[in-house]
Amino acid sequence: MHLSSALNARVTSGLTALLLACMSGLVWAQATGAAAAGVAASGNVNAEDRQPLICGMEAPALPLDVPSESLGDVPTGVPAVSYTAAERQCWLSLTQANATAQVQWVDVRDRGQTQRLSAQGVPQVPLANLGDRAFLKGLPLVLLGNDVDLKVLSAQCVALRESGQFLQVHVLLGGIRAWERSGKPVVRGAGVQMDTALVSAQEAWIGARSGVWQIAAVGLGEADLAQLPTAPAIRIAGRTAAQPSPMTQQAASALWQEVAAQMQRTPIEAPRQWLIVTATEVQQSQLMQAWRKASADPGSSTVDALDGQHPATWLAGGMSAYLNDLQQQLALARNAGRSLPRICGM
Rank of each mutant, 00 (worst) to 15 (best):
V74S: 00
Q104D: 01
L275A: 00
A101V: 15
L160P: 00
A261K: 15
R111P: 01
G337C: 02
Q156V: 11
D107N: 01
G33D: 04
S118D: 14
G56W: 08
I236H: 11
G189T: 11
F166E: 10
V212F: 10
L141T: 04
G174N: 09
R265D: 14
L127F: 13
K184L: 15
L255P: 08
Q89R: 14
A252F: 03
M194C: 03
V186S: 09
S245G: 12
A294C: 01
P271D: 09
Y83F: 13
W205S: 01
C344L: 07
P341E: 04
P52M: 10
A47C: 11
R188P: 01
I215K: 03
S253F: 05
L228Y: 05
I276G: 03
P123N: 07
A242S: 14
P311W: 04
E281I: 00
R188L: 11
L330S: 01
P244L: 07
R334G: 04
E162Y: 01
H310M: 01
R342L: 15
Q120D: 09
L306G: 02
D149S: 08
L144I: 04
S68Y: 04
N44V: 09
S118R: 09
T95D: 13
S182K: 09
Q250M: 05
G345F: 00
G56K: 07
A201E: 05
R235E: 15
L326M: 11
V218Q: 12
Q156Y: 09
Q264E: 10
Q262G: 03
L275M: 03
W213C: 08
N46P: 00
N324E: 15
W274D: 05
Q96S: 12
A294E: 04
V152C: 02
L53F: 07
H2K: 14
Q327V: 00
Q328V: 02
V186E: 03
A251L: 04
V11E: 05
T196A: 01
M319E: 10
L275I: 07
G317V: 06
Q243F: 03
K151A: 14
V282W: 00
P271Q: 06
L62M: 10
L130A: 06
V152E: 12
V171M: 10
G238W: 08
P341H: 06
T100H: 11
R177I: 05
T230I: 13
L172I: 11
I343T: 12
Q327G: 08
Q273V: 15
G207F: 08
